[in-house]
Design a binder for these strands. Structure first.
Lengths: 105, 105
DNA sequence: ATATGACTTGTCATTATGTGACAAATATAT
DNA sequence: ATATATTTGTCACATAATGACAAGTCATAT
């Protein structure tokens, strides 16, 4: 874990986009999606499609694995936030996740 | 955090039910749901409806808050498991969840 | 062996939730 | 004011979750 972003994934995309002087339309085109929807993604009103992560990484020359980590941690953060899950509870959750692994499936 | 269950929430319900010598049909009736669907819940194929938590607590004389914690940690565990989220990544996610709080909304 | 009760599985109609697409509104710059 | 950039609203469609019920398995008592 090298990065320590506090942004949401949407804000992160916006950051990347503006730093590289892209317009929504330009980036959206490269990602093969509607610029209006990309706007919603940047503003946290829609989800970024996981299948497009590698494309996004390629555009901004990022490490795909790192980017996927950002993506996953953001998604988890959203859940943590939404269920208002405390650190304590998260620990329990982690144990339970381990338990689920032992159930294979 | 007093409990340290490793079960899934479904398994937990089943445990409560069998310890109290209830049949699926009996418990389902009290929870106002189909016994077939309760079976699926116990076996992790459906979700327990959060709105019925207090009812469940009442039936088995449990602390509602504790029960809700079990419920939430189970749900989080599911997410952690599904996205195969490492402890490291979880820490990052927690920070990001904090960040989301600062965004209010 | 078959009847009964307990549990599981499959399926379907309905509902809820998310997505792509485009129009319209707003903001920002020139 | 005009053009461009961004945001918001909405609709039709796809996808996923749910309630309901039928049919299945399994164990056991008779």
């Amino acid at each position: 874990m090298t990065s320590h972003m506090k942004e949401t994934f949407g804000e992160y995309i916006k950051l990347l986009r503006t730093k590289n002087k892209f317009t929504l339309t330009q980036l959206a085109a490269q990602l093969e999606l509607d610029s209006a929807n990309l706007s919603k993604i940047e503003n946290g009103k829609r989800n970024f499609d996981e299948k497009k992560l590698s494309k996004l990484a390629a555009i901004f020359d990022l490490d795909t694995k790192e980017l996927r980590n950002e993506y996953i941690s953001d998604k988890m953060a959203k859940h943590i936030y939404q269920m208002d899950c405390s650190t304590e509870l998260l620990k329990v959750a982690e144990e339970k996740a381990e338990y689920r692994k032992t159930l294979k499936k």
